[in-house]
């Protein structure tokens, strides 16, 4: 009798609505949609506003019209190019971010590998030190660093914006956590197969670590592309100024919201392109770094 009772209980269908979804799933989807809307809305607002005449940006701001491109044109974008040397600042940002990303991948990957795989005295101390560095906000070291680069005469240059950011504790940690979980036998097999340390790194380790390379590349790009405080401190003119600082200067100069939004759209576009290109690897890399599953 008990068995029959329990059968009836367990076989009772869950409450569903007409879509065929259980209510719990519906609530979940609804919450997620609201959250997505919350995050997407400012971006849509920025894109739509960049296409509108400046007078409409503020008047439409309080209504649904803010998300509808009425009287759309590319005039704001033309204005940006007319008022500032946008190509120059875009190049500056691209060059600085690209150099940090490429050099960072090499330096941080090697550091992560050395910490994970090579046996040397003081390895644990260095690792602990690097992990501790992750929790120190940049703002706290900005002034001493500024003082230091001023002494050596690095201000107003590309390298002052590149070199201090190549080695990055978080990137090293990501590489370290990937390499530490990689089967040691792969490297040993390569050693027996006749590969030296560099060829093992090049032919075996790097191809297997592609997801984590992509993750670090994207994270570095995102972090450095939007960097504002440091470039503001160390640059004085347009020659070496990157996009975020140029945008702030542009805002103070023109006070036209349509133009500012157009500037913003052009600044965000490369990030979106980079993310969309490497999205698959990025997800894989994050998952692999988190779970220790490498292959």
């Amino acid at each position: 009798m008990n068995q029959i009772k329990s059968y009836h209980i367990s076989s009772r269908p869950k409450a569903t609505i007409k879509l065929g979804l259980p209510i719990s799933a519906l609530i979940c989807y609804l919450s997620l949609s609201l959250m997505a809307l919350f995050y997407i809305a400012p971006i849509v607002y920025m894109v739509v506003s960049s296409l509108k005449p400046d007078s409409r940006v503020l008047t439409d701001g309080g209504s649904i019209l803010a998300f509808i491109p009425v009287e759309g044109s590319l005039r704001n974008f033309q204005d940006v190019f007319r008022r500032v040397s946008f190509g120059r600042v875009m190049f500056n940002s691209m060059f600085i971010t690209g150099m940090i990303m490429v050099c960072g991948l090499v330096v941080n990957a090697l550091a992560g590998y050395a910490l994970a795989r090579l046996q040397w005295r003081g390895r644990e101390v260095v690792l602990t030190f690097i992990l501790a560095l992750m929790i120190i906000p940049f703002e706290t070291i900005a002034v001493p660093l500024f003082y230091q680069v001023s002494i050596i005469g690095w201000r107003d240059s590309y390298h002052v914006q590149i070199i201090p950011f190549i080695a990055d504790a978080f990137s090293i940690y990501l590489f370290y956590s990937f390499f530490i979980g990689m089967p040691r036998e792969l490297e040993e097999a390569a050693r027996i197969d006749g590969a030296g340390p560099w060829r093992t790194l090049l032919y075996i380790i790097v191809p297997l670590a592609r997801p984590v390379f992509a993750t670090v590349a994207i994270l570095t790009f995102l972090m450095r592309w939007g960097s504002y405080l440091w470039p503001l401190m160390v640059t004085t003119g347009e020659t070496y100024r990157p996009l975020p600082v140029a945008m702030a200067a542009f805002e103070n100069q023109v006070k036209l919201w349509g133009d500012i939004m157009a500037f913003g759209v052009m600044m965000v576009a490369p990030i979106l392109i980079v993310f969309l290109l490497f999205q698959g690897w990025f997800v894989k890399g994050v998952a692999a770094s988190g779970t220790g599953q490498k292959q």
């Binding site: 089967p183 036998e185 792969l186 040993e188 097999a189 390569a190 050693r191 027996i192 197969d193 006749g194 590969a195 030296g196 032919y203 075996i204 191809p207 297997l208 292959q295």
Partner: peptide, 29 residues
């Protein structure tokens, strides 16, 4: 060093290079 000992080793978990094909694995050494 291991590469000059003229030995070959088969590991417990095989240690095949997962990003390579069977041919590439066999040809690597």
């Amino acid at each position: 060093p291991p590469k000059n000992r003229d030995i070959a080793m088969v590991f417990q978990n095989y240690a095949l290079y997962p990003h390579m094909t069977v041919y590439q694995n066999m040809a690597f050494g």
